[in-house]
Design a binder for these strands. Sequence first.
RNA 1: GCCCCUGUGGCGGAAUUGGUAGACGCGCUGGAUUCAAAAUCCAGUUCCUUCGGGAGUGGGGGUUCGAUUCCCCCCGGGGGUACCA
Length: 948
Amino acid sequence: MDYNTAEIESRWKKYWSENNTYQVSDDTSKPKYYVLDMFPYPSGAGLHVGHPLGYIATDIFSRYKRQSGFNVLHPMGFDAFGLPAETYAIQTGVHPAKSTNDNIKKYIEQLSNIGFNYDWSRSVKTCDPSYYKWTQWIFTQLFDHYYDKDKDKAVSINKLIQKFEIGGSFSVNAAHALEEDFSAEEWKSFSDVEKNEILMQFRLAYQKIGYVNWCEALGTVLANDQIKDGLSDRGGHPVEKRAMKQWALRITAYAERLLNGLDLVDWSESLKAMQRNWIGRSEGAQVFFNIENNDKKIEVFTTRPDTIFGATYMVLAPEHDWVEELTTSDQKDKIDTYISYVNSRSEIERMSEVKEVTGEFTGSYAINPFTNERIPIWIGEYVLKDYGTGAIMAVPSDDDRDKAFATKFELPIIDVVDKTDYPGASLKDKVGKMINSDFLNGMEVKEAITAAIKAIEEKQLGAGKVNFKMRDTNFSRQRYWGEPFPIRYNEQGIAEALTLDQLPLMLPDTDDFQPAGGGKSPLARNTEWINEEAGYTRETDTMPAVAGSSWYFLRYMDANNPNELASKEKIEYWDSVDLYVGGTEHAVSHLLYSRLWHKFLFDIGIVSSREPFKKLINQGMIQGVIEFIYLQKEKGEGGQNIFVSQEVAQSNPDIEYAMIPVHIDFISSYGSKDSYLDLEGLKKFTKWWPSYKGAKFVSSTATYTDGGEDVDINMVTKSEVGKMSKRYYNVVNPDDMVEQYGADCFRMYEMFLGPIEQSKPWDTNGIDGVSKFLRKFWNLFVSENQLIVEDGTPSAEEMKVLHSTIKKVSEDIEKFSFNTAVSAFMVCVNELRALKCHKKLVLTPLVKLLAPFAPFLSEELWNKLEGEGSIHHQEYPKFDESYLKEDSIEYPISINGKKRASAMIPTDATKDEAEAIALGLETIQKWIEGKEIRKVIFVPKRMINIVV
RNA sequence: GCCCCUGUGGCGGAAUUGGUAGACGCGCUGGAUUCAAAAUCCAGUUCCUUCGGGAGUGGGGGUUCGAUUCCCCCCGGGGGUACCA
C-alpha cells in the first residue's frame, strides 16, 4: 500500500468514467453554478503545461461548488475551425477534419490524465454540423434583423420594410449606413435589387465593399488583430489593403450597450479597460462647414467644439470621396503626386514615420461658421479615412498634430485657450480659459464645450454627438475550414438567408485546399456545391473562427438538442456563466463578439441574461525559457560553423552572431541564469541538428570540435523568457509531469506556483515540496502497508488544526487564492504529524477538503476509509468557530511602533488589564525607563503599542 | 504618447479593514540514519552587528501611535493601444 500514483490514477479514471461520476443533470431543485473554461483550439502540438493552469483552477472550483451543494455545469469543448488545420492540410494533404479530430482525441486523453471533472457527454466542437447548424442559424437571424435606436434593440427586418412602405426612410431611427434618405413613394418605385441594397445598409449581418487586409501568401483576409506591424501575425507575410465585398456584423449598433454592460460584470479592471479602450467612446460635436462655391458641406467630428474660433484650416483624408471634386485645376498635379505618394507607402512606413508631417492644398476653401473666415482645405495622411468622418477642422493652437502641420505649411495659428493657470498641462488637456473666441471668452474649457455645442445646435450647424472608435469588422474569410455562410444569391444577385429546415449548410468534402485565387476561398472552385439549386448560387466565403466561439457556452446547456440551439427551460435554468477563466489573448475579439451575440440573442428572446459571463478571471501565461546558443555569422575555414558561449559572445561585441534555439532537453541547469550545454549536451545537439555536424564550440575556457577529442567544456547559453512553443523547442508536456509525479502533484504544484492571474516561467524547482506533502498526507493514513487510522475523540488542539484548515482553505477557494490554500494544507499536515494524529474524526473531513485539489489521492483514501460512493459527491466540510476560540493570545508589544516584546494576554482582557500586563514586562520596563508614557494603543486581538 | 497591471530574502511567493514583514515551498548550511549514496528525519537560514542593537518591502517625500498596505513625485519590469480629431 505504497503511494503509487500510476496505479491509483488508472483505477479511478476508469471508475469515474464507468460510473458517470461527473455527469451533470438538469436537477432544478439545486441551485446551479456554471463554471467555464475558454475552450482550446486543438493544435497538433498537444497540450503544454501552460494550458492546464486555468483548467485546474476551474476544476478545483467546480468540485468545491458541487461538494457545497450546487448543481455544477463544468463542460469542455473544442474551438475546432481555424487556419492552422487548413495550412497543415495544404502542406500535408491531411484533411482538416481528420487532423482536427485526431488532435481532439489527443487533447481529451491528456485532459483526462490530469483528472478533470468534465461531463464529456455535453462536449461541443465548432466544426460539427450539428453545432454549426446553430451558428449559421444565429447568423441568419442577424441577417434578418436591424437595430432600432428608439427601442434600443434588434427588430425584425420585415418591420423595417413596413415602415419604409409607410413613411420611407424618414420614419426610421436605426443604425445604418444609408447615404440618402427616401420617401415611401420612392421606396415603392425601387427595383428589388435597389431595395435589397438599401436593406443591406440596415441588416445586422450585412455585406459591404470595404478595404480589407489581404494577405497574398496566406490567400486570405485578416482581422486587424491578426496583423502585427503590417505583417501577418502567423508567418509574418506582407499584408496589403484591398477592396473586396465582405460580410460584416454591425457591432457598432451595440457600442453603447457593450460599453454600459461592462458595469454589470465582475471582471478585472484591466480587462474592462481594454474593452472600453477598444470601443473608444468619445463625446463631442458634429459640425458642418460650408464650402466656397460648392453646395456641399464638409462634416467633421470634434471633441473640442470650444476651439472652433481657432480652426484656421481643414484637412481631409487623402482617400476622402470629395478630394477630386474639391481639387482646383492648378492644384491637380500636386494633389495627384501627393496621392500617389500616399498609395506607395506601406502600412509599416506609415506607422514608423508618424512624426513626419505630409499634406497638400486642394485649392478650395471652406468657411469657418463662427469666424466667417475663408479657411483652406488640405489633404493629409494624418487624417484617417475610417475614423470619424475622414475630415477634421484643424485647430493648430490646441492640437499637436495640427500645430506641426500648420508650422510646416505656414498656416495661421490663433491662440484660443489660455493655459497660464495650468503650468504642467499639455495642449490636449481640456483645461484653461477661452480667449479670442467671442462669446466663449473667459469661460473654462469644460464650460465652453457645452456652450459651443449649444451654439452649434442653435445655428443649425450640427449637433452634439458621440463617436466610437470601434468599427464593424469584417466577418468573411476566404478559407475552406470554417462555417459556410447560410446565404444564397438569386438570379438577380440578391442575398437570401437559408431557413432553419435548410440548415445546416454542410461544408462540402474536398481534398484540395488551395485558395481559388482572386481573393476567393477554395469553395469557389466547387461548382457543384455553389450551384446546388437551380437559379441560386452559394456564398463561397466562410465565417471566422470567432463565430463558433461566440455562443458555445449556451450549447453546453443542452448540447445534444437537435431542434433548438438549446431549450428554453435549460437556458432559463443555467442562465449565464457564473465563472469564466481564460487568457488575456481573448480580451477583445472573443469576449466582445460573445457579448454582442448574447445581447442580440437577448433582443430576440432566446436568452434572458444581459451579459454572458458574470465573473471572469484572466489566468496568467505559463511561459517557457528559450535557450539560445550563439552562432558566429562568419563561418570558419572550410565553412565550419563556429558556436560560442554567452561570455565569449559578450566580450566580442563587434562580431555578429545568430541566435540558435536549442532543445531544452540538452541543457543542464535548465531555467537558471547560468544554464549551459555540457559535452554530452553538445553531442546531442549536433546529432539532433545534423547540419551542424563538425561544428566548433568555443567557451572562455575550452574549445571542442564535434567528432574530435572529448574536452571538458561548458557552453553557457542565453536564456530568455518567452512563449512556450514548438518553434523554440521548449515545450514542456504535462503528460511527462503526470507520469513522473502523478496528476495530483502536478495539479497542486501548478496551483502552488503563485496567484492564478500571474504569468511566470515554467520551472519544476519546487515540485518536490508538493510531492513530499502528498506522501506525508498519505502517511497520516497508511504506514508499512497498514491503515493506521484510529477511532477515538480528537483533542482540542487536533480539532483546532482541522477547523482552522477548513476555514482557510474554503476562504481561499472562494477568493481564487489557490496557492495559499495549498500552503494551508501543508501547514496542516506538518502540525498533525507533530501531534502524531491519526484520528478518523480529523482525517475524514480532511480527505473531503483535499478532494477538489487531489481527486485521485482523496478518492483512494476515501475508499480505504470505506466511505460510500465517490468522495466527489461528499459534502464539503464546514468549519466550526467554537474550535478556533482561544483563552489567550500572544500579543506583540511595541514601543513607538517598533516591536520590543510579546506576552500572552487573555482574549477577553480589557484595555487596562492588557496595559498592566504589558507595562509589567521586564523588557518593556527597560525600554520605558526614564521616559514619559504619552499614550497606550490597544487593538483587541492584534497588538499593543506604547508611545513614549 | 495614453490606459491598465506590477516591483517584498538566493528563488517562487505569504501578510484580513493600516497592526509581529518574510507564512508555505525550493535552495543552501549543519546534524541524525547509511559501508556509501538516494530517500527520510531534526535544527538553522532577510542583511549588518562591537551581540547592546541597527537597517530593511524599487527610490524620495507625506499622512499616522503605527505604512508592504493610504497620498504625492520619480525609476524599473510586463501588457494593451495609438496620427482616434
